[in-house]
C-alpha cells in the first residue's frame, strides 16, 4: 500500500438554495492516502477548505446507508468508495440522482419515507403473541427465503439507479418493493394482503422495465430487481385468478 500523501481533485456539486439559482460544480484539491474514502475526502473539505459544504453521513462502514451519492456518475456509498480508485483523474461527486436536492449533497427523501411507511415494513401477525408465549420460531430454511431482502439499509442507491423512478416518482421503486417482498416471504408475517394492493396499483411493479441497474449498484446484494420482477408474476397471477381463487386461500 502506498502510504505517502498525494493530491486529488474533487469536483463537488454545490447548491445553496438561499443564493444559488441552479447547482454548480466547485473544485477542491484534497490531500489523500490510499486508505481514505470519498467520505473522508468530503470531511477534509468541510474541516479544512469549505465549512458550508453539506452532506449526510454517520457510520463510515456501509451499514447506516446515509452517505449515498453519485460518484463519477454512479450511485455509491461515499464511505465504501476509495479516492485512490479514481486518482489521478478528477473525482466527481453529486447528490443522489432522481431526488430533489435540498442542499449540496443532501437530497429530499420525504417521498421514499412515505413509501417506506406505506408498505408496513414490519411483521404483521394474524394473532399477536403475548410476551409470555415467547419468541416466534423460524427454521433456517424459512429464514433463507427472505434473508437477502432483509439486508436493505435504505441507502436509496437503487432509486438513484432506476430511470423509471427518475421519470415517474410515483413508482413505488426498487427499495420499497424489496422490503414488501422481505416481509411477505417471512413465515411469521400475515400482512401480504395489506401490502399487495401497492404492488398491483398503477404506481406498482409494472412501472419497472427490468433495467436491472438497481441490483447492480446495491451495496448489500439485496437484488431489488428480483423482488420487483417476482412480484410482477405474483401480481399478474392475482390479476387473472382473483375471480376464481376463493378469498383467504393461500397466504
Amino acid at each position: 500500500m502506498n502510504t505517502s500523501e498525494r493530491m486529488i481533485t474533487m469536483e463537488v456539486l454545490r447548491y445553496r438554495p438561499e443564493q444559488d439559482e441552479t447547482p454548480f460544480f466547485q473544485q477542491f484539491l484534497v490531500p489523500f492516502t490510499d486508505d481514505m474514502s470519498v467520505l473522508q475526502g468530503l470531511q477534509y473539505i468541510k474541516d479544512e477548505l469549505e465549512g458550508s459544504l453539506s452532506f449526510r453521513w454517520s457510520c463510515r462502514m456501509a451499514i447506516c446507508g446515509s452517505c449515498g451519492m453519485m460518484i463519477n456518475g454512479v450511485p455509491k456509498l461515499a464511505c465504501h468508495t476509495f479516492l485512490r480508485d479514481t486518482y489521478p483523474n478528477t473525482l466527481r461527486v453529486e447528490a443522489l440522482a432522481h431526488f430533489p436536492i435540498e442542499r449540496d449533497l443532501v437530497i429530499v427523501m420525504d417521498d421514499f419515507m412515505a413509501k417506506l411507511e406505506s408498505i408496513r415494513p414490519y411483521i404483521i401477525a394474524d394473532t399477536p403473541r403475548a410476551l409470555s408465549e415467547g419468541e416466534y420460531l423460524q427454521t433456517p430454511a424459512q429464514l433463507d427465503l427472505y434473508e437477502q431482502f432483509s439486508s436493505c439499509i435504505n441507502c436509496l442507491l437503487c432509486y438513484a439507479a432506476c430511470p423509471q423512478y427518475g421519470l415517474n416518482s410515483k413508482f413505488i421503486g426498487p427499495g420499497a418493493m424489496a422490503l414488501v417482498h422481505r416481509y411477505n416471504l417471512d413465515s411469521r408475517d400475515s400482512g401480504s394482503a395489506q401490502r399487495m394492493p401497492l404492488v398491483h396499483a398503477e404506481e406498482g411493479v409494472f412501472n419497472c422495465t427490468a433495467v436491472g441497474y438497481c441490483s447492480q449498484v446495491c451495496p448489500k446484494k439485496v437484488d431489488p430487481a428480483n423482488a420487483v420482477n417476482i412480484n410482477k408474476t405474483e401480481s399478474a397471477k392475482d390479476y387473472f385468478l382473483r375471480f376464481v381463487t376463493p378469498k383467504g386461500a393461500g397466504k
Binding site: P17, V74, E102, P163, L167
Partner: peptide, 21 residues
C-alpha cells in the same frame, strides 16, 4: 427550502449501462 429538481433529459446517454439498455 427550495429543493432543486434535476432534469432527466438524455439520461440514457450518461451511463454505459443505460446505453446498453
Amino acid at each position: 427550502r427550495r429543493p432543486y429538481v434535476r432534469p432527466m433529459t438524455g439520461w440514457w446517454r450518461k451511463n454505459p449501462f443505460f446505453i446498453e439498455y
